[in-house]
Design a protein around this nucleic acid. Structure first.
Lengths: 145, 145
DNA sequence: TTACTTGCAAATCGTTTGCGATATA
DNA sequence: TATATCGCAAACGATTTGCAAGTAA
């Protein structure tokens, strides 16, 4: 039942941000509270927490997994320029699973929706700056490919 | 303009299947037609083809990218047991991008939908076999995690 | 003690890349 | 002969894992 000190820090970090950090972004943030925590521990705990449903592991386009401190189902939108991922407040498409079930013969359990676009900050930079999105939180240019 | 022999083989392979193979599944299949083709070549060509829009690079949950010989927009469904990914024939939710745009302030460009469920083959195996999905095409159990 | 969990480092996995060789225009 | 693409192997980045030490009941 008891949560290790490390696990507590990791969960706190994840709940304190609205972004959807990658494992090593969580690691960097956790290090501020606990400098000797290891990256392996962060991975292990994030994995365990997502397995137990405490947090969400999200697979948006790109190379790195991201984690979401809000385990309630919701959709995501990703900025194709800077890579940040935000929650999007849309009603869940509740009929969709049934429709999909009829179309495929699968037992459909769930679905996810990911939008791709350009976030307000990047839109305002475009054409002005040769290196768009530089220094934004949660940025991960590699993800654009 | 001309396509290399290797590129042709890779594209043929991808168009000959309805599954959505990973790069090394494409590699294995391509090797049957061209035994000395290299994995690097497969990656390079898949990347180039997806950049030019000839094929689709899809990022479904899991560690590996998958490729789709059908570049027309459509949604996907993944079996959580065996990992196979199928196309799903649903009307595109054309209004969704606009709704998302209003909800977020992003310039929304596109969206993708991924369903997760249990495919008919795996459903029929469940409870019967201790190793569900074993030996199915396009299976990738690592992706389930 | 006993059962976890950690920090660290090495291992693994998917993917990318440098380079000399090969093929194609 | 010039240009593009290849095969191969080494490099890379993200994640996982083995293990000895640390922690808490």
């Amino acid at each position: 039942m008891a949560m290790s000190r490390q696990a507590k820090v990791i969960l706190d970090v994840l709940r304190s941000v609205t972004s959807h950090p990658t494992a090593d972004e969580v690691y960097e943030m956790a290090r501020e509270a606990m400098p000797r925590i290891s990256l392996g521990t962060v991975y292990r705990n994030l994995e365990a927490m997502s397995e137990s449903g405490l947090v969400l592991k999200i697979y948006v386009s790109g190379t790195q997994k991201r984690f979401d401190g809000n385990p309630k189902p919701h959709y995501h939108i990703r900025c194709g320029v800077c890579g940040r991922v935000d929650d999007i407040d849309l009603d869940l498409l509740v009929d969709l699973d049934r429709t999909a079930q009829e179309a495929t013969g699968y037992d459909v359990l769930s679905h996810s929706v990911e939008f791709v676009g350009v976030c307000p900050r990047c839109r305002n930079q475009e054409g002005v700056n040769a290196a768009p999105g530089k220094s934004y939180t949660s940025r991960n240019p590699k993800d654009d490919k």
